[in-house]
Design a protein around this nucleic acid. Structure first.
Lengths: 105, 105
DNA sequence: AATTTGAGTAACCTAAAAGTTACATATCAT
DNA sequence: ATGATATGTAACTTTTAGGTTACTCAAATT
């Protein structure tokens, strides 16, 4: 079952992984060096990030290179876009009110 | 301790609450009517949403009206903006490569 | 003043998430 | 072939998140 994107980025370690991968492509072991936790724990996080579309894995020999995948971020953007409309609409309504005020003055 | 915004939106019920509030302002009890869970459970979610800046509460008598607050959404936008830069940068680099190719042709 | 209503809190329970260790597997180097 | 390295998986433990019920308090209603 593919994990939900909100759940995926709720974990600080996973967000840190994304941050590290924004600087450079890294293997699982290289990633693990940046954390206190064990390598299998990192491995699990990678799986979740991969399944929910935040990273892509490129196998080269016995190594797995992790790189950012835009899909996950786009899904998140879509969610926020809905609420962006809400705020824009609110602003528009406010402007209408202000316009009516000046018209009636 | 104020909860982190990612943790806050990780819960489906809380996202549903935000969705409901994008349509109309509701009191805690009115919100609770939309869910299977008990009112105290909803009350807890409201507290978390409020503390992390996704909603604002306006007390009127014994009722508490919940409305969306842009702060939480903005924080989320900021996080995504960092990675947006990553993708834009990647695109820019790709363009540079393509330009060099045509120059050398 | 007594009752009802809206809501917060405390104590507790349960389920799920995140971590661990131990083991398995495949690739690389010698 | 043998040993070392990179990684995945399984079984287990611990922590934490989300839910419940019971209780309290304050505002509205009668």
């Amino acid at each position: 079952m593919t994990p939900d994107i909100f759940q995926t980025i709720a974990d600080p370690s996973r967000r840190e992984i994304l941050h590290l991968l924004s600087r450079e492509t890294l293997t699982i072991n290289e990633l693990a060096e940046n954390f206190e936790m064990s390598r299998p724990a990192v491995s699990k996080h990678i799986k979740i990030l991969s399944q929910s579309g935040f990273i892509t894995i490129r196998d080269i020999g016995r190594e797995r290179y992790c790189l950012l995948n835009q899909d996950g971020f786009n899904q998140l953007q879509e969610w926020i876009a809905y609420f962006d409309k809400f705020w824009q609409n609110k602003l528009r309504k406010l402007e209408t009110v202000l316009n009516n005020k000046s018209n009636n003055a």
